[in-house]
Every structure is written in C-alpha cells, then in structure tokens.
C-alpha cells in the first residue's frame, strides 16, 4: 500500500468505521496492515441506526483534525450527496434531517446476511466511501499551448546528396579535362646561380609581392598580411551587428568587398602586369611573365 499521510489515513479509517459500524482503532489498524482484515459485521440495524441518526458533521472540527481545508470538505460532501441523489447532510450546528448517503444502505442491507454465508471478499472500501483524493492545483497560465514553428526541411538523401554528387562529378570532370589538355610546368633543373627575371612567388602570394613594390618589406611582407589575417579571424567579434540582411550590413559588406577586390586586383597585377625587374608591363604588349601558366602560353 502506498504511503499515505497519517491524517488522510485516519480520516479514511473514520469514514469506513462509520460506514461499517466498527471502532475507528480497529479499522485503522487493519488499514495499516497491523491487524487481520475482518469482514464488516454490518447489521441492518446498524445501517438503519446510521440512517436514522444521520451524521452531523462538524466541518470546522474535521478541518482542524485532518488538516483538510473546510471548503474542500464541504464541497466533497455536497458532491457526494449530489452523486448519490441524497440530500446534503447537516453540518455542524444543524440537526440531521436526512439519511446519510443512500449508497450505504444497499451495502448494509446486502451484507446483512453475509455472516451466515461466509465473509464476503474485501476488495476495498465500500462504494460511496472514498478513502483518499488526489488533488493538484493547476494555475491557468501553467498550461501552455505548444506552438512549434513549422520547419521546412527536406531529407538529405536524396535531395542534398544528389546535388553534392553531381557537383563532385562536375568538378572531377573539369579537373580531368584540364589535366588532360594542360600540362603542369616543369622548368629546368633548380639552379642557385641563375635567378630568373622576374622571380615570382606562387600566384596566391603575388598580391603580397605586389605590395612589396610599394612598401617597406616589413610592412608589405609581414605587417599587412599579419594584421590582415588577424582582422579576418576576428571579424565575428568585431562585427556585433546581429542582422544577416544585406541592407542592414552595408558597412561590413563595403569593407569586405574593398578587401576582396584589392586582394584580387593586387594578385592580378602581380601575375600579369609585372615583367622583368618586377616592373610594370602590359601583357598584350610585352607578353605574360607568369610561369604557372607557361605550358598554356607557349
């Protein structure tokens, strides 16, 4: 049996005792499992006397005794009377005029002959006697409607994987075709005594090499790329604007676009517009000095 608070157990025992006409201590011991279950020796006259006596309930006293609010006791009493079709028992101070709950009467009369035929199985409290109630207080605001955002999602297979696979094949085709028709350059054996003119870095560093033509090596070779890379890495912590709408981030887009365009222009200048001595040339006039593409150009 689940552990019930003592006050509720006592109240239940009294209710059963009153219904079955036994002593409260006896019923209580039985409910606690300290005494064997005894079938209720309810006699018709007990029921009758109970009916004639009619319970007069002192709700104030009960409320204090069982620590149950008076309002709940009264409400329960009225509800039970309403369900049974009987009238409400008199309350404290009033003289009982009506019979107790009518549901007790059939039990009483039915069990009147029980001792002769053997004890009926006790399966719980008799009908109409509730030994416990589970109550909970729910505030109106505590129950919330769940509003799940409708999400527009698709399965990765096949929707995304098919696209990725096609992109992969396209890239593979492009690369294979390019490799079939354009050979990678392989110039003469490395010679420490013959520096080509011009000497160019790999193309992705040619923007920096272009800067070297304008600035001191420490500025162009280290400080600008160093600070540039650091600034790039810190973008999320510098740009605190939470919006991703292009119209809200005109300054950020402008700055990045300037960076992107200047990096591209410097790289193109360094790759195609710099000739012997790293001096300016025009590729359409003097030819291209860009050995990465030597095999195409020849």
């Amino acid at each position: 049996m689940a552990q019930l608070p003592d006050n509720l157990l006592k109240r239940a025992a009294e209710a059963r005792a009153r219904a079955e006409g036994r002593s409260v201590d006896e019923v209580l011991a039985e409910m606690k499992g300290e005494a064997p279950v005894v079938s209720a020796p309810v006699a018709a006259d007990t029921a009758a006397s109970a009916a004639s006596d009619g319970p007069t309930r002192d709700l104030d006293a009960e409320s204090a005794q069982y620590s149950v609010p008076r309002g709940l006791l009264e409400r329960g009493m009225r509800a039970r009377a309403g369900a049974d079709g009987s009238s409400v028992p008199a309350m404290a101070g009033a003289v009982a005029a009506a019979a107790p709950s009518a549901s007790q009467a059939p039990v009483a009369s039915a069990s009147g002959t029980a001792p002769a035929t053997g004890p009926p199985p006790v399966v719980g409290p008799p009908p109409g006697v509730r030994t416990q109630r589970l109550l909970t207080v729910v505030k109106a605001g505590a129950i919330q409607g769940t509003t799940t955002e409708p999400s527009d999602k698709v399965n990765v297979w096949p929707h995304l994987l098919a696209i990725e696979f096609v992109a992969l094949l396209a890239m593979l085709a492009l690369l294979t075709l390019m490799s079939a028709f354009i050979d990678a350059p392989l110039l003469e054996f490395a010679n420490f005594n013959a520096q080509p003119n011009p000497s160019k870095a790999p193309w992705y560093f040619l923007g920096l090499q272009e800067l070297l033509a304008y600035f001191d090596p420490q500025v162009a070779g280290v400080i600008i790329p160093g600070f540039g890379l650091a600034a790039l890495a810190f973008i999320p912590y510098i740009d605190r604007n939470p919006s991703v709408r292009p119209s809200d981030r005109k300054l950020a887009i402008a700055i990045f676009t300037v960076f992107f365009m200047s990096a591209s222009i410097l790289t193109i200048l360094g790759s195609f517009f710099r000739g012997p001595g790293f001096n300016f040339t025009f590729p359409w006039r003097d030819g291209i000095f860009f050995d990465d593409l030597k095999t195409i150009l020849e």
Binding site: L186, K200, Q209, V222
Partner: peptide, 25 residues
C-alpha cells in the same frame, strides 16, 4: 608543395616567398 618539383620555378618562387617571412620583425 610548390618546392617539390625542384626546378627553377619551384626554387625561385619559394625563395621569393620565404624571403618575405624573413622580414618578420
């Protein structure tokens, strides 16, 4: 990877590139 072919392109491109690192203050 640029240096590995060990030809003139590799040697001098890497020379120019790694010279820049030498300018570190």
């Amino acid at each position: 990877g640029y240096l590995l072919p060990w030809d003139q392109l590799a040697l001098w491109a890497v020379t120019v590139g790694s010279n820049m690192a030498g300018y570190t203050p």
